[in-house]
Design a protein around this nucleic acid. Structure first.
Lengths: 232, 232
DNA sequence: GATATACATATTTTCGAAAATAGAAAGAGT
DNA sequence: ACTCTTTCTATTTTCGAAAATATGTATATC
């Protein structure tokens, strides 16, 4: 799906740059999702070439892909800007994602094989490792949590037979990720609860209980989003 | 004149070269939708630069956008290919599109204002002009029909308040367009019926009868798709 | 003949210079 | 002081050359 990382030339990787080593598209998306570039910010090539150490053409390619993904807007002649955020959009995205994720999960539960199950257990374990960490450390490794959380949810629906269902779901998930970031500094109260929720969802899924899994995941998502809406 | 990226240019091509005067992205998508480049075809830059008379960088930008839209695939190091087609995919796309279009239509019917109504009438008229043409001429102007048909359906849901609902619907519509093309040479029997269907859908929509409009549009889409599936 | 290795060709991918464009600043006329 | 040019600067957009990569062909070796 994503572009395979090219062989990085032996140029000295700038130490301290946390996102070096990945391709430009991912690094760019990451920086937008994690609000390194805030909404509405103009993305000038002069800045970006320096930050990512790639040519203008390569950047333009990545940027225009992010336009179709909805993270960036392009006004002809005026360049690229980070897409705006709003509570209304979050509400709408949440709605669509719940609808798609539930269908994808049912689909996956019907079609999943042993490898699918094994992978879910594996990524859930990786996620739980970071979620059971003390609050302080969890915060410093937040981008890692985002990645593992994404992996967990993707693993759940990976066996879904509908390619477009999977695809549309993923578009919405990526958008949600962006909003999810605002809850980074939320009180830790619900952190532990979330850990339980993930386990329950996994259990229902592996038990092939589509109704229960569906119900749990809907609650999981809407709870998380509601929290984000309040913080927006 | 300022052109917003992402909005499809509705300008007609200048005389002579049928696809000159539009941006590369549209021309490329058009050529894929109309099977100028058949599925699985490798898209070599050498050919494309000559055909469209633009540089490699510009092409790459357009191509990578088409990747996110699902019309093109990219294998790192092996270049771009036209995305494959299959009956299964058509079935799935149809399902999603029906679901989204119905929701979008209800939304639009609730929120549409006078301008929305007026535009629907106008675009429907443009469509009917070309649909009431004798079969021979309709075939020669098929790409024009495709455009006007797209405009009609877009006008119906233009007032839809959910931006993402509109967006997801449009992604699916574009995909359907590609499959719709295989029915170009279908027997004319249903051509006239389709004309009626469009009128009925418009009437129900302007009468703000969401249930009826919903029902009609579902039938309209599934009939069209079933016909395409048989021809695939 | 089959397999491996080296070489040659074709194609993609990257990059930065040059052209095109928008936006700001300066100047002229009323 | 105001508006309309003009000029200059900043930024985007385009392009094709050069580097990196994959593919195809010939030659050698077993």
């Amino acid at each position: 799906m994503k572009k395979i990382a090219g062989t990085r030339s032996q140029k000295q990787a700038k130490a301290g740059d946390p996102s070096s080593g990945q391709d430009v598209l991912s690094r760019l998306r990451n920086d937008i999702v994690s609000s390194v570039f805030e909404p509405e910010t103009r993305l000038k090539f002069a800045d970006l070439t320096e930050r990512y150490d790639v040519g203008i053409g390569t950047l333009r390619e990545g940027l225009s892909q992010l336009v179709s993904e909805g993270f960036v807007t392009l006004e002809a002649g005026k360049g690229f800007k980070v897409a705006p955020v709003s509570a209304e959009e979050l509400i709408e995205i949440t709605e669509h994602f719940i609808s798609l994720e539930k269908r994808a999960l049912r689909d996956a539960i019907e079609n999943g094989d042993d490898d699918w199950e094994a992978n879910i257990v594996a990524v859930h374990h990786r996620l739980s490792l970071i979620e059971s960490l003390p609050w302080e450390e969890r915060m410093t490794r937040h981008s890692e949590w985002v990645q593992r959380h994404r992996d967990f949810h993707e693993a759940l629906v990976a066996a879904c037979s509908g390619r477009w269902l999977f695809r549309l779901r993923s578009i919405m998930f990526d958008q949600l990720d962006r909003y999810r970031f605002v809850t980074k500094r939320a009180p830790e109260g619900l952190g532990g609860r979330k850990f339980e929720e993930h386990s329950e969802i996994m259990a229902a899924t592996l038990a092939r209980d589509a109704d229960l899994a569906s119900e749990l995941i809907e609650k999981h998502i809407s709870d998380t989003s509601e929290r984000a809406i309040r913080l927006l």
